[in-house]
């Protein structure tokens, strides 16, 4: 990979990576740092990274940096340990996007990551498995669970409304 391709990668993937990380950790400064770190790692390994695989390289690097950060902080609540009845609150939601954002926050870290990679970036199970160091079947299970959880949340809100 050369400098021109590196700069093209910045244009093509920086925003997507930033969105992916920001949606996961909800901290803009840290998301920026993770994106920055990922591109610095790419630059250091520019000779060894194929331009065709740079997107996967960047998201893998960003994902693992983020997971390390989350593990350090461990401040997120695991969706799977939350009773769905907890969604029954009186708060009114204006639109689906807002509801989804809240539902997304309630997913486990892994579920959130895989479903964001799936929906935001359109990755296949195999590609997500590579990025997240999971098996394809694990990825599939996490995505299915995430969908069911999101659907339950949306359903419960719609019922209330």
């Amino acid at each position: 990979m050369n400098t021109v391709e590196y700069n093209k990668s910045v244009d093509k993937y920086a925003d997507g990576m930033f969105r992916f990380i920001l949606k996961n950790i909800k901290d803009e400064d840290k998301a920026r740092d993770i994106v920055q770190d990922s591109f610095e790692k790419l630059w250091r390994n520019i000779e060894n990274v194929n331009y065709q695989k740079v997107k996967s390289y960047l998201f893998t690097t960003a994902y693992h940096t983020m997971i390390d950060l989350i593990r350090k902080e461990k401040r997120k609540e695991d969706f799977e340990n939350v009773d769905v009845k907890e969604y029954s609150h009186s708060e009114q939601y204006s639109d689906l996007k807002e509801v989804l954002n809240i539902a997304l926050e309630k997913l486990s870290d892994v579920q959130r990551s895989v479903i964001l990679l799936r929906d935001y970036e359109g990755y296949s199970y195999a590609e997500i498995a590579k990025i997240t160091d999971l098996s394809e079947s694990q990825v599939k299970v996490y995505i299915y669970r995430a969908r069911k959880n999101l659907k339950s949340f949306i359903g419960s809100i719609e019922t209330l409304v």
Binding site: D15, V35, Q36, Y120, K151, I154
Partner: peptide, 26 residues
């Protein structure tokens, strides 16, 4: 309801310092 769980990327969220990431050609 399941169809509504499909997430759509918020294109308004962009990386603020993209130009700073770029490198000059050697």
């Amino acid at each position: 309801l399941y169809e509504k769980t499909k997430l759509k990327a918020d294109i308004d969220i962009i990386y603020p310092d993209r130009e700073e990431l770029k490198r000059k050609e050697r």
